[in-house]
Computed example of a mutant assay.
Amino acid sequence: MDKKIIGISAIVIVAVIAVGAYYLTTPDDGVVKIGYLAGDYDAALIVANVTGMYKSEGINVNITPYNDDRELITDMASGKVDVAYMDVANVLKYIEKGVPVKIISSSQNGGSGIIVSNHSGVNSINDLRGKVIATPGEDSIQYILFNNYLKKNGISIDDLNVSSHSVSSVNKSIQKGKVDVAVIYEPYVTINQNEGSKLLLNSDALYPNHPNCVMIATDGFISKHPNETRKVVQVHENATKYLNNSTGWVYNKVPMDSVKDPALKRYYFDNVSLVYGLDDDFKHNVDDFMKILVDLGNLKQPIPQEKIFWQGS
């Protein structure tokens, strides 16, 4: 059996047993535990924390970064994390497998792109055969977007030389000639352009306004703490509006280790869509994206909205 399937199945067993048991038996310490995948799309979370927005809403938070979505979802199952920011493809995968979480807000749309070496000779999607192509991995949104775009253009991803690669080091691999093409996410799309690579296709070209990062919470936390759930969603909305309306200085509060240049950081923020809420348009976009996941074999079948979205919005 595939190791990924074994791993996900184990997570489901832990999740179904542990989430309910945790919220029934563990004393409430009054702290909302928030996890996120270390990267770029948690800007609203970071800004909300450093500007005191949680405190203003009377919420005590403990925020923890993670490097792996499986570790994060396992900690949600064990009660170590109540709320998390995660990419929507992985969230849908875990919900299909039975992990008891709900999407409580949108967070980011877009933010992906295809970068090519200036020496690769790649000027269109038809030039990819025979080239070394790097992606963050087969479970990533970038791989899914890429695979879908290829399929629409009559190209099978199986006919290309595609492999997983660390996004943070992909530019060095491009400069050394080890990689010709990289399908990556922000801020690395911007970083690689700044360091000499060229943009072949951005998110809008691959899939306009596609959902990317979402905010989720465990069913146990939602049912036991409905008011706190509403408050963390409100804080996310406030922080997103704060970022979207900023004249620039606030971006320096987002501690992206990979982006030191304030001007470059601002350029990155101009190329992603920071969003909030669960309106009908967003739910429709998730439904459309889910059809792609089914078509590509990432999901077995579409998931009903009531199993995906928080009903308290």
Rank of each mutant, 00 (worst) to 15 (best):
M1A: 14
K3V: 13
K4V: 13
K4I: 13
I6T: 11
I6M: 12
I6Y: 12
I8F: 06
A10C: 10
A15V: 02
V16G: 00
I17W: 05
G20E: 10
K33S: 06
I34Y: 01
G35Y: 02
Y36T: 07
L37W: 01
L37E: 03
L37N: 03
A38P: 01
A38M: 14
A38Q: 15
D42V: 11
A48T: 06
G52Y: 08
M53T: 06
K55R: 15
S56W: 09
S56C: 06
E57T: 09
N62D: 14
N62L: 12
D68F: 10
E71V: 14
E71R: 12
E71Q: 15
I73R: 00
D75M: 06
M76A: 02
M76Q: 06
A77Q: 02
A77H: 03
V81A: 02
D82W: 03
V83C: 01
V88P: 00
V91C: 09
V91M: 10
E96V: 01
I103K: 00
I104S: 00
S105T: 02
S105L: 02
Q108H: 11
I114G: 07
I114P: 03
N118P: 00
G121A: 06
G121R: 03
V122R: 00
N123W: 01
N126S: 14
D127S: 09
L128M: 09
R129W: 07
R129D: 12
V132P: 00
P136L: 08
D139S: 13
D139T: 12
I141W: 00
L145I: 09
Y149N: 09
L150T: 08
K152T: 11
I155V: 13
I155R: 06
I155G: 08
I157M: 08
D159E: 15
L160A: 10
S168E: 14
S168A: 15
S169E: 15
S169P: 05
N171H: 13
K172M: 14
A182F: 05
P187M: 07
Y188A: 07
I191M: 12
G196H: 04
G196R: 04
K198E: 08
K198Y: 04
L199K: 07
L201T: 05
L201V: 09
L201M: 14
S203K: 01
S203N: 08
A205R: 09
A205V: 11
L206N: 08
N209W: 01
C213K: 07
V214A: 01
V214F: 00
A217Y: 02
D219C: 08
F221W: 07
H225N: 14
P226A: 12
V235I: 13
N238S: 13
T240I: 10
S246L: 04
G248R: 08
G248L: 06
N252L: 11
N252S: 14
K253F: 13
P255L: 12
M256P: 01
M256R: 15
S258D: 12
D261M: 08
L264M: 12
L264E: 07
Y267R: 14
D270V: 02
D270S: 13
N271F: 03
S273I: 07
D280M: 05
V286G: 01
D288K: 11
F289L: 11
F289E: 03
K291S: 10
K291G: 03
L296A: 06
L296T: 10
L299W: 04
K300G: 05
Q301C: 07
E306G: 00
Q311C: 03
G312N: 11
S313E: 09
